[in-house]
Amino acid sequence: MSTSERGQYSWLLERLRRARQDRGLTQAQVAEQMGMARTSLVALESGERRLKPEEMVALAGLYGQRLDELLRPSEPPRELAAQFRESAGRMPEEDDLRHATLALQKLAEDYVELERLLDAPLPTSFPSPQTVPTDPVAGAERLATEERGRLHLGDGPLPHLRELLENDVGLRVFSVPLPSRFGGLFAYDEQLGACVAMNSRHRWERQRFSLAHEFAHFLTRRDRAEITVVIAGYRRVPAAERFADAFAQRLLMPAGGVTRRFEAAKTASGGRVTPALLLGQADFWHVSAEAMARRLEDLKLIKSGAWDQLVRRGLKPEEGRALLGLQPRQADTVLLPRRYVLLTVTAYRKGLISEERVARFLRRDRVAARRLVEELDFDLDDAPDLDAR
């Protein structure tokens, strides 16, 4: 066996070991189902005994894996779950969260595989990692301003934050269901890149704040996986989390832009600061009413404690938005990035993947996958001229 073949064989064994662990199976359980001694399975996984073709097929079926996935001609990236264990001290006990970390790993690996097939690596614009400053709030203000400048964002709202982070920075962002108390996941790997999972079960405004929060971790703690917990009520918050929250607030609502537009709106309303003005500003900046009020308090544009006073007086933001004719925002539940979907369609059109693999890449059944491909794989140059008379 050549050096290259030995390397690829070791990658196969590593993928088999991970697949077994992902299924929650012990070596003893697998050995029993395979009709072999546990020591024989140990020898297989360690490479001491050569894996027979029929054994590989049986193990793939047992683990719910396709052979082409196990035989990918590339080294398996580091397990993201291991990064989360290292950062949190243990793997979170919630089954949904454990499944989400495994899903994030597989989604990122599939994304990289599509790029490999098409020789189309993800364009990235990664700045050098920053350290979390001693003063989290002042440091967050500075870094948020720098990033807006680096990405040429001006001081206006960021309605398409997910697309911005995907296309202009190079993050891989997926929308996956997480337990409600978790805002998102972030992990970085040299092979997989920067991977983010935002909670598809959260409201749209919360999702955007979580994305900006994870972006802060990417900018400062790239080597450390993060599980972001949505904290309610008083609780001592680590400096890195205070920084990430402050950065998210300032990235979404820059001081100069907020001040200028608030003052203009205040003038238009006769110098009065009303709930309607607050809700209008929140809608403009694509944030929640509470986040808007907290930012205005922070900038001393409204008095401290104004939001708490509005809550005590019974303000219901959703009812107020409806009265003002402001359209409700829908949560982003789209699992896959647009670029990922387009890569899948292109790979299929070029004959690089089968229809079955298209369905697997898109996480849809074959009928739905075929319909999506037909809708997207349409050459505009071949379209009839609708303006022709």
Rank of each mutant, 00 (worst) to 15 (best):
G156S: 10
V137G: 02
T131N: 06
G149L: 00
R98E: 06
R162C: 00
R148A: 03
P133N: 07
L97Y: 12
E146N: 12
P129Q: 07
G149I: 00
A100I: 07
L117G: 09
P127C: 03
H160D: 15
Q130D: 13
M91E: 14
A120H: 11
L122K: 11
V173H: 04
H160G: 02
Q130N: 12
L102M: 10
P129D: 07
N167F: 11
V137N: 06
A120F: 06
A88H: 06
L165I: 09
E79L: 15
L107T: 04
E163N: 11
P123M: 01
D96W: 14
D168K: 10
E115C: 08
V112T: 12
A140I: 00
A140W: 00
G149K: 00
L80G: 07
G149S: 08
P157Y: 03
L80K: 04
L153V: 11
P159M: 00
G89I: 13
V112C: 07
L114N: 08
D135H: 13
T134D: 13
P157H: 02
E147S: 11
G149P: 09
F126D: 14
E79R: 15
L153W: 11
T131C: 04
G170P: 10
F174K: 00
R148D: 03
Q130R: 15
S128L: 14
D168F: 06
S128Q: 15
R148M: 01
A82Q: 15
P159V: 00
L165E: 10
G156W: 00
R85D: 12
L122C: 08
L153G: 04
R148V: 04
L118H: 05
G156V: 05
E147M: 15
G156I: 02
S175P: 09
P121Q: 06
E113F: 14
S125G: 10
V137M: 06
T131L: 09
L158W: 04
D135S: 09
L164M: 10
V176T: 09
L118A: 02
H160W: 12
A100E: 06
R116E: 01
V173Y: 02
D135Y: 07
H99V: 13
L165S: 10
A120P: 03
P157A: 01
R78L: 14
L171R: 07
A88Q: 11
L80F: 07
R142T: 13
G154F: 04
P157N: 05
G139R: 11
P177D: 08
P77A: 03
L158V: 12
P77E: 00
E113G: 09
D110F: 00
P157E: 02
P127G: 09
L165D: 13
E86H: 13
E141F: 08
T131W: 01
V132G: 07
D119W: 09
P136S: 10
P76T: 05
L107F: 08
P177Q: 07
G149D: 04
T101C: 05
V112N: 02
G89H: 11
V112P: 01
A144V: 10
R150W: 00
T131S: 13
L118E: 03
A138F: 04
P133C: 08
L143M: 08
R116I: 01
F126N: 12
L104C: 06
